[in-house]
Amino acid sequence: MRKIELERALSGEIEPPVIRLDDVCKDYDDDMHALKHLNLIVNKGEFVFVVGSSGSGKSTLIKLLLKEIGPTSGKIYVMGKDISRLKKNAVAKYRRNIGIVFQDFRLLPEMTVFENVAFAQRVIETPIKKIKRDVPNILSIMGLSERLDAHPSELSGGEQQRVALARALVNNPMLLLADEPTGNLDPRNSWEIMRLLEDVNKRGTTVIVVTHNKEIVDMMQKRVVHLNKGVLTNDYEKGGYSNVKN
């Protein structure tokens, strides 16, 4: 399937992939093997769905990519860097290259839409002038220009997820991780979010979406990586959920 590509990337024939997992294992204890010998390459500009049932290792994969946990064995390269070797104080800077969106949005309720997005720039000490320019821009792309002063409680689920997406993208990350981004949304808002993610991907950001939404995976015909009990069982270039064999 993607074996040839993996060999080419490893031999340095092609540009280093955005993500490269070499024989990664993650054990939480002796009996709990969350990931087993996972090999995966995600190249720049790809849009990848990661699917699988509960306990398949999807969340562990996200945690590993965010450097929240380390692998038990194997190597993880993100943008050419071995993140298993990252020192504690370098983790913060590493995470600035990654945007993340969650199912439950994780917006700060006491902040306005503008402040929630600006918060992502404030924490990396972006000059105020740039914040004032970037935040309205990204919120306009997300169709939220009219909602800058609203608080999360005043927004619909779809709007909240668009704010979360704006926050994830305002620092121009190379990689966007979306963990069940449509899990709390109705079909109309789910499609709206997927359309935005596709737009983001077209602008050059590598997007990885962890999802259970069969309809979306089938319709979008993107790369689908299937995990089952910590093992990569299927990897389709342009697949759907229905192709997945357990």
Binding site: A92, R96, R106, R167
Partner: peptide, 16 residues
């Protein structure tokens, strides 16, 4: 707690 967790996620340094 939530704010700090998001800060860490976005890439805030411990110093910040």
């Amino acid at each position: 707690k939530q704010e700090i967790s998001i800060m860490k996620l976005i890439g805030a340094t411990n110093f910040f």
